[in-house]
Structures are given as structure tokens and as C-alpha cells.
Computed example of a mutant assay.
Amino acid sequence: MRNLLFLFIFCFSVSITAQELNATVVVNAQQTGNENLQQFKTLEKQLKEFISSTKWSDRSVTAQERINCNFVINISEYSGNNYKATLQVQSSRPVFGSSYTTPAYNINDKDFTFEYIEFQSLIYNPTQYASNLISVLAFHIHMVLGMDADSFKPEGGDAYFKQAQNIVNFSQQENYAGWKLADGLQSRFALIDNLLSPTFKAFRTVMYDYHRLGLDTMGDNQKDAKNQIAKALVLFNDMNRRRPNSYLLRVFFDAKAEEIEQIFSDGPSVDIANLIDTLNKVAPIHSSKWRNIKI
């Protein structure tokens, strides 16, 4: 009996202290022509363990609350311990009352070079720089956590986004691309700077309204939920007038364009005239999808 009680307590404690992410990691080195080298397999295994075992915040979560996310590293070149790659990061979140999961973050970071020695220790310190490999991953992990939190609570991702900004600040000391203002409008610097700027405040409002007031209410009243989603998306109009074609809008619609097309091409009819006008203005690159919306 005591053994059973101990086992119950142990399992319960593991559940409430589970890490925040349920992550898959893929290291694809096909472009190098040497994709079967052991060092790539070791890197993949180490990164999986690093992401899954690191405690990224003070928040306690159950295993069911873990965020599903994918990290795909496509290595194009390597020389010794130096690697050139791109990093695709995707995350999703469950929709209340359904088995459906909605994409929350989808980004392709093309400024990803790093040093790696096989079996080196991978340790994240939230207050200091360790390596570009760790900094880039930690930055996007905090973006995943922040986007997820914003979708459940108004500006719920503040702590995560501010830590992402801290990572940008202490990573600027090294000579790697993506961390500085001079690195352009689609850098890690630009992404977090925009996200925390009052100019783009509507973005975070949309994240909450779209998910919590829209998608999460689909099971109660699909027509009302669609109207809420349309109302949320129209908020992008003012933001786009101030800063047309912003990186934040691209990040949002890279994750959401296909879903928006599906939502408004099925189910009960709602007035979409203003919505279509907004979508064509703020995300013209997806105009072929907007043309498919018929209801």
C-alpha cells in the first residue's frame, strides 16, 4: 500500500512539474551531401533533450498543458564546428471543446549560423549569453510561449516576450546576424521590437480575440464565433495603415491564412465584405486564398 501511495505521489509530482513544451526536433543535413554523419544525429538528440528538459519559466503545467511545437533545422553548409542553416519553428494550441489544434506561431529564421562541438553541454541561462545556437532556440521558444499565452489571456505573453527581448539584447555582443537593428525588417530584433511596440498593439489584441473569443466559442455558436474572428481580423486595418506590410502581419498570416480560408468557406454565412477588403490589404500575398472564400 505504501508503495502504491508513493507511486501515486511521484506520478502526480511529475505531472504538475512537467516542462512547458512537447517538442519535436529534426536536424536535416541533406543539402550538405553528408546527412548520415553521426554529428548531425547527436545534435538532433541533444537539442531534443535540451528543449524538453529545460524549465523555461516559473509556470507549473500539467502534461496535457504542454505546447506542441516543431523545430526543423535545415543545415546547408558546415566546416569544422561551424554550421549554416535555417530554422523553421511551428507551434499550435488546442481549441476549446474540440479535437482541433490551431497554428499559433510559424516562422522560418534564415539568419541561423552557429558553432557546435559534438556532445558539448547545452545549458540555458536566462541572464547571459552562452552561444548563438542556444540564443536562437531560446528566443523562438519564448516567442512560442508568448504567442500561446496571448491567445488565452489579453497580453498574457508579456513575461515571455520581455525575456525574448532580453535574449536579443545580450546576444548583440556577438557577431551573428539577426540580433541588431541593422539586420533588417525581418530579423529577430525587428520581430520582438515590433511586438512590444505600442504601434503594433492591435496584433496582441487580435491574438486574444481571434482565439479566445472566436475559435474557442465555435462549439457554442459557430456563426457568432465567425463574426468574432472577422471582427478581430479587421483590427489589423489601422495597424497596417501605420506600418504597411509589417513583419508581424507576415508571421501571423503565415500561420493563419489557410485556416482563415477554411473558416470562412464553410458553415453558416456571415457578412464578410469588410473582412475580404481587410485581408486583401493586410495580406495581399495570400490573395489566392481570399478569392476562395465564397460564403
Rank of each mutant, 00 (worst) to 15 (best):
L7W: 08
I167M: 02
V26F: 11
I117C: 03
A138V: 06
S76D: 10
A29F: 03
D148M: 09
I295R: 06
L235P: 10
I285S: 10
S151C: 02
K45R: 13
S265Y: 01
V95G: 01
N245A: 06
S13L: 15
Y105T: 01
F264C: 01
V282G: 05
N125C: 04
L275W: 09
G184R: 03
N3F: 15
I293N: 04
F264E: 00
E258A: 13
S287T: 12
Y247P: 00
N227I: 00
Q46V: 08
E261L: 07
A257R: 07
K41D: 14
P103A: 08
T205E: 12
A138R: 03
E20D: 11
C11G: 06
N175Q: 15
Y160W: 08
K256I: 11
F236Y: 13
T205K: 09
T62I: 13
F50P: 06
K223V: 01
N74Q: 06
A255V: 11
K41F: 13
Q90D: 09
R243S: 12
I295D: 04
T17N: 15
F8T: 14
I167S: 05
L145K: 07
T62G: 11
E77S: 11
Q120Y: 05
E174H: 13
N245E: 10
R188K: 08
N169P: 02
F264K: 00
K162E: 10
I75L: 04
A149P: 14
T205M: 12
K180R: 03
F252A: 14
R204N: 05
L249S: 11
T101D: 14
T17Q: 14
V168L: 05
Q30V: 09
V26I: 12
L21D: 04
G214C: 01
Y78Q: 12
L248P: 12
R59I: 13
Y129D: 09
E49F: 06
F119V: 03
I285Q: 09
K201N: 06
Q120N: 03
K201V: 07
N274C: 10
L87N: 11
E65S: 07
V72P: 08
T278G: 07
